[in-house]
């Protein structure tokens, strides 16, 4: 990424604007991840409600990013690293918007789950998983601002941890459901939550890949560990 300035300074301002919008979106999404998981652990319906309502702001920002990018493409016809900046901004904002949706979905399920008996240890495990994803998100966005492909690569590698947390929860929920069918409703909701957080991790990974593309011009080679073993999971009934 050249740190030299454009001869036309308003071009630099336009590029800075769309990147600032991404950072703003990123801040909102990070908060939504933590707040939604906290609302579940603390059985805090009010916080869950705030997360649900807050998603609108994220969606609106994404729309504005798209509009600004379309405008910039039409008016400036960016090329080389400038083009990569615009392309990655569009992709990252789409990733952030999806993560926001998952947080909102988590918050919705909180409102259902508070009506039921808690499942032992589940919500704190979910909060830890959310915290891990949020940490990856923070680093991915830092890597973006710093144009740091190594930090981005580190984030990609950490997605494996999230996958493993998901696998563990998956097995745990299966066990609870087999032990007592009255747990099924709550465990189904909790499982969707865990799955959605695992999906958040995938979107963060995709953001990290955009950072690598932005700073090197190449997408990373696919050499990271794949961790979701649940498609092959079976239940042993005795």
């Amino acid at each position: 990424m050249p740190d030299r300035e454009h001869i036309v300074t308003s071009y630099d301002r336009d590029l800075e604007t769309i990147q600032a919008m991404i950072m703003k979106m990123g801040g909102l999404v990070e908060a939504a991840i933590l707040d939604s998981a906290n609302s579940l652990e603390r059985r805090d319906e009010e916080l869950a409600e705030r997360v649900r309502l807050g998603d609108k702001a994220i969606d609106e920002l994404e729309e504005r990013v798209n509009e600004e990018c379309a405008r910039l493409l039409a008016l400036r016809q960016p090329i080389a690293s400038d083009l990569r900046t615009v392309l990655t901004v569009m992709k990252i904002s789409a990733n952030l918007e999806r993560v926001g949706d998952y947080a909102k979905n988590l918050a919705k399920r909180t409102s259902v789950l508070v009506q039921m008996n808690p499942i032992e240890g589940a919500s704190s495990a979910i909060r830890r998983m959310a915290k891990t994803v949020e940490g990856m998100m923070k680093d991915a966005l830092d890597a973006y601002i710093q144009r740091d492909p190594e930090l981005a690569q580190d984030v990609r590698m950490r997605d494996h941890e999230v996958d493993q947390m998901y696998n563990a929860l998956f097995r745990q929920f299966l066990t609870y459901m087999m032990e007592d069918p009255r747990n099924i409703t709550a465990c189904m909701h909790l499982h969707f939550i865990a799955k959605n957080i695992e999906r958040m991790g995938d979107h963060v990974t995709s953001i990290a890949e955009q950072v690598i593309y932005l700073s090197t011009g190449e997408m990373p080679e696919d050499n990271r560990p794949k961790g979701d073993s649940t498609p092959y999971e079976t239940v042993e009934l005795d």
């Binding site: 050249p2 030299r4 300035e5 454009h6 001869i7 036309v8 071009y11 960016p78 090329i79 080389a80 690293s81 400038d82 083009l83 990569r84 011009g217 190449e218």
Partner: peptide, 19 residues
């Protein structure tokens, strides 16, 4: 050349930067 130029002089020139 237009998505990923290798030389910084090319990049500066085609993107309209002060080179």
């Amino acid at each position: 050349i237009f998505t990923n130029p290798q030389d910084p002089r090319t990049e500066s020139y085609i993107t309209g930067r002060i080179g």
